[in-house]
Design a protein around this nucleic acid. Structure first.
Length: 281
DNA sequence: ATGACTGATGGTATCAGA
């Protein structure tokens, strides 16, 4: 086959898609405003976290009526992730693979899809607080966060070695730098900005993954979470903990990255707001 | 100075979130 035919076949299917991530903090409460935002923002694929719903109770019809396929990985009461898409996936995988020495894990925090030559994952990293146990050692919650992170690191390495474009997005529960929160002194030692958490995040970046929002906005200040308490939203006391990470192949396909803070101002808002990007898929 | 929020759960107090 002549070379130009090969090139044309590779380029023709490419199109820009808008990909987003939003910790919705209960799909039962947030469902209608998620649909409103999907349609207003023109989002093609939305990864959701903290759906707090079992698969059988997820309001699927809200999404299918709006023209989106919905894939859930739920559990009772806590956690739970899902992905809505108006473009078909080639495969959907639920759960982060275990390593030989991993802790037991019943929590639903990871969903991964193939679309075109891309692999995309939606994740909800454990919070990790409190940091210190009663006996003065590391609290099991932070141990769990770091163990989960180790599994994510391994998966990110395997995906990156496939040489496919890889996009990891979700609620990382990580404040990467001092400028990613309104007052870093309030967060020193917290599990979201703990030295072990930051070291794990750095190891992920050493694989070749980029904090896409920061790459596009090197000097900006923007947050993705504002606590319900203390008027944090009104005072803009926020933190940037929801991220899009892209490997080199995916970074080359990035067109735009943003954080849409408007949904945080909704009635009955989630405490998180969506982060999004446009990529050529 | 004080208290200050939201969601899920056989629940009217507790856990978790960050």
């Amino acid at each position: 086959m002549p070379l130009h035919h090969v090139v044309v076949e590779r380029l023709l299917p490419s199109k820009p898609l808008k990909i987003a991530s939003w910790n919705v903090n209960s799909i039962k409460v947030r469902g209608p405003q998620v649909i409103d935002w999907l349609q207003a923002s023109g989002t093609d694929i939305l990864f959701m976290q903290e759906i707090k719903s079992m698969d059988e109770n997820f309001p699927r019809e809200l999404f299918t009526d709006a023209g989106y396929d919905i894939h859930t990985h739920g559990q009772k009461t806590y956690n739970g992730v899902a992905v809505a898409s108006r473009v078909p996936f080639d495969d959907v995988r639920r759960g982060l693979p275990m390593l030989e020495d991993s802790m037991d894990d019943e929590q639903a925090r990871y969903i991964e899809v193939d679309i075109g030559d891309f692999t995309m994952a939606g994740l909800y990293l454990p919070n990790g607080n409190p940091v210190v146990a009663e006996d003065g050692g590391m609290h099991p919650k932070l141990v769990y966060k770091l163990d989960w992170f180790k599994r994510l690191q391994h998966r990110a390495q395997v995906l990156n070695q496939s040489q496919r474009p890889v996009l990891l997005t979700g609620d990382f529960n990580i404040i990467p730098k001092a400028e990613d929160c309104w007052d870093v002194d309030k967060w020193r030692g917290d599990a979201l900005h703990h030295p072990e958490t930051l070291a794990a995040f750095q190891r992920l970046k050493w694989l070749g993954y980029t904090d896409a929002w920061r790459a596009f906005h090197p000097n900006a200040i923007a947050y993705s979470f504002w606590d319900y308490q203390g008027g944090a939203w009104q005072k803009d006391h926020g933190i940037r903990i929801d991220h899009v990470l892209t490997n080199a192949e995916a970074s080359d396909r990035l067109l735009e990255v943003g954080i849409d803070k408007t949904p945080r101002g909704n009635d009955r808002a989630s405490d998180h707001t969506p982060v999004w990007c446009r990529v050529t898929v």
